[in-house]
């Protein structure tokens, strides 16, 4: 088991409890996807792992996070990234004033001083679109290019565990398809373990091996991706498909408001 999250609670600013006992396990070499509505606590879970809670005044108050056999909860992001966990932040956060290539070079921060030419080549082979933009300031790139850029940047670090936060956010369906294809390739060819947080449950469950569903700061369901894909509740609430397999009519979709409460 590469990553084990054991019953963690996360509290922001000592008052707002966001995670209420989340446990999940990520096997080496797998893609694990984390689904759930807005505010379910998915991003917070990722931040708890990558240590980025700290700058936001959040804290793991309970439970433990174990990565490759050693506890990492409440370590600083610098220490955690050096263990090989890299998070790709939600909403594509490029370094706007740096060129694409300089952006990629920042990805080498955790192994400062080592050569990086090979890695650049590797990233460009996964994301050929970036090659043409090498000398351009990242602020002027399109959304799809930026998503590739931030993923490529993370790849430069040779992560053992890659945390992807909503890579499909605000992208055209075709671009989403392309990006998910690349995620799968990275997982297969580089053997990188990936935790994928997504709203696009359909896409995520297609490439993932295992899935968790979160709601209200708790894990409410888990299982292998194929099983989740077939689960009637998941189908209804996340895939928007009724039990019969047909798309719902608008009248039925309104029942979405009476969202099922798990537990």
């Amino acid at each position: 088991m590469l990553l084990t999250i054991n019953n963690i609670s996360v509290v922001y600013s000592d008052v707002i409890q966001v995670l209420k006992g989340v446990s999940l396990r990520v096997e080496e070499g797998q893609i694990v996807s984390l689904l759930g509505g807005n505010g379910a606590g998915k991003t917070t879970t990722l931040k708890a792992v990558s240590g980025l809670l700290k700058p936001e005044n959040g804290r793991v108050t309970d439970g433990e996070i174990i990565f490759a056999g050693s506890p990492i909860h409440n370590l600083s992001p610098e220490e955690i990234t050096r263990k090989g966990i890299i998070q790709v932040l939600e909403g594509r956060q490029p370094f706007k004033y740096l060129t694409v290539e300089e952006n990629l070079r920042v990805g080498t921060a955790i192994r400062f001083g080592k050569p990086y030419q090979e890695d650049l080549k590797l990233v460009y082979s996964y994301f050929p679109a970036l090659l043409n933009r090498r000398k351009m300031k990242a602020g002027y790139c399109s959304g799809g290019e930026l998503q590739m850029l931030v993923m490529g940047r993370a790849l430069m670090a040779h992560p053992r565990l890659l945390l992807l936060d909503e890579p499909s956010l605000g992208l055209a369906p075709l671009v989403v398809r392309e990006i998910f294809g690349i995620i799968k390739r990275i997982n297969e060819e580089q053997g990188t373990t990936i935790v994928l947080v997504e709203q696009n449950a359909n896409m995520a469950l297609q490439i993932a091996h295992y899935g968790y569903v979160m709601e209200n700061g708790k894990i409410v369901m888990e299982g292998p991706a194929e099983e989740l894909r077939e689960n009637p509740d998941i189908k209804e609430f996340y895939l928007g498909v009724s039990a019969a397999g047909a798309l719902k009519s608008y009248r039925d979709v309104k029942s979405y408001r009476r969202r099922k409460r798990w537990l």
Binding site: V88, Q93, F95, Y97, V106, A109
Partner: peptide, 19 residues
Amino acid sequence: IYMRSVADNQRAALSLGVH
């Protein structure tokens, strides 16, 4: 470049392990 990246977007730099 790390220094410039921190000026640019501190959170992103932190997520990549820039010290």
